Computed example of a mutant assay.
Amino acid sequence: MTDQPLDILVIGAHADDAEIGMGGTIAKHTAAGYKVGICDLTQAEMSSNGTVELRKREAAEASAVLGLYYRSNLMLPDRGLTLTKSHIDAVVAEIRRTRPRIVFAPYWVDRHPDHIAASHIAEEAVFNAKLRRYMPELPPVQVEQLIYYYINDTENVSLAVDISDYYETKRQSLMAYRSQFQSAVAGEEDRVSTPLTDRYIERVEARDALLGQSKSWLYAEAFAIKRPYPVDLF
């Protein structure tokens, strides 16, 4: 278990998913003293560029940039995430070890199948984590809210966070993943061009700027919820 319960646990299929979708929100909360952790489900061993060891170093660098309290990798199979008991139980155990107040997961619609699978696994795990007779070897955990972040396209936005003051931190966390986002050079050994190497960080920035525009913010990150978000006063 972590020394103290997390305020926020962000679940992603691969290292860099959380940074793409909500790096600014993470930075904003760690700066405010929140204990934020990221759980990467896979080692991204099927990525066209980079290696498992390199991705691990890049994730550590991004974690330092964001000021994370905790980061883990469950080493589930990349391109093999499935809504099976073993994968759900691995995330249930992680939730019970870290005891987060809020869990974030990828939005349930995405062009990458692993992101969709991670979303469904997280939803099942959050539900099962509160059941005291489910995996009774670990104490049950009641998560207050499951919130979904966008990695690629955005739709049905429910919540928005102003990240204008933290955008440079988000940018630096993304730039830590040089194997994924740095432009491929012709003839470079064991490296190929992908959509991620074609000005991807610029495209993320454009999306975040567009999301902020409706609120007259420089940058925003958007989120979706399935259950009503409780408020006392507006």
Rank of each mutant, 00 (worst) to 15 (best):
134 Y>W: 04
156 N>Q: 15
14 H>W: 12
73 N>Q: 05
70 Y>Q: 07
158 S>A: 10
175 M>A: 13
46 M>P: 08
227 R>V: 14
50 G>A: 07
204 V>M: 11
55 R>K: 07
97 R>M: 08
60 A>S: 09
64 A>M: 08
111 R>H: 07
205 E>Q: 15
73 N>V: 14
226 K>N: 12
193 S>Y: 01
97 R>Q: 10
130 K>H: 07
173 S>F: 02
11 I>Y: 01
124 E>C: 11
137 E>T: 08
105 A>Y: 04
1 M>S: 14
6 L>Y: 02
214 S>V: 11
130 K>M: 09
12 G>P: 02
183 S>K: 15
108 W>H: 14
29 H>S: 15
124 E>L: 09
38 I>R: 04
188 E>F: 04
165 D>A: 08
90 A>Y: 00
45 E>P: 03
23 G>I: 06
14 H>N: 11
169 T>N: 05
159 L>V: 12
3 D>E: 15
78 D>R: 04
134 Y>K: 04
208 D>G: 06
226 K>G: 10
26 I>A: 09
213 Q>P: 01
143 V>E: 09
120 H>I: 08
179 S>N: 05
5 P>Q: 01
98 T>L: 00
165 D>P: 00
20 I>C: 13
12 G>I: 07
192 V>K: 12
148 Y>T: 11
3 D>K: 14
96 R>G: 00
144 E>V: 11
11 I>N: 06
36 V>L: 05
165 D>F: 05
150 Y>M: 09
2 T>G: 03
231 V>F: 13
200 Y>E: 10
98 T>I: 03
144 E>M: 10
221 E>R: 01
108 W>S: 12
128 N>Y: 08
191 R>Y: 10
194 T>L: 02
163 I>T: 14
125 A>P: 00
33 G>C: 05
194 T>M: 07
149 Y>D: 04
209 A>N: 08
204 V>C: 12
233 L>S: 09
27 A>R: 00
48 S>M: 15
223 F>R: 05
199 R>Y: 13
39 C>Y: 02
210 L>H: 14
196 L>T: 12
132 R>E: 13
214 S>N: 06
67 G>V: 04
25 T>C: 10
119 S>R: 04
167 Y>L: 10
201 I>V: 15
224 A>W: 03
63 S>M: 09
116 I>W: 01
23 G>M: 01
53 E>I: 03
27 A>W: 00
39 C>H: 06
114 D>E: 00
100 P>I: 02
22 M>A: 10
98 T>N: 05
90 A>T: 04
33 G>N: 05
148 Y>E: 13
210 L>Y: 14
80 G>W: 00
18 A>V: 13
207 R>A: 14
84 T>Q: 09
43 Q>K: 14
164 S>K: 06
184 A>C: 12
204 V>P: 06
145 Q>H: 13
60 A>G: 07
94 E>S: 06
131 L>A: 12
108 W>P: 02
157 V>G: 06
72 S>L: 11
3 D>M: 12
173 S>M: 03
65 V>L: 00
193 S>M: 09
94 E>R: 04
77 P>L: 06
188 E>C: 05
158 S>F: 03
42 T>W: 11
157 V>Q: 08
46 M>L: 15
61 E>C: 10
34 Y>I: 11
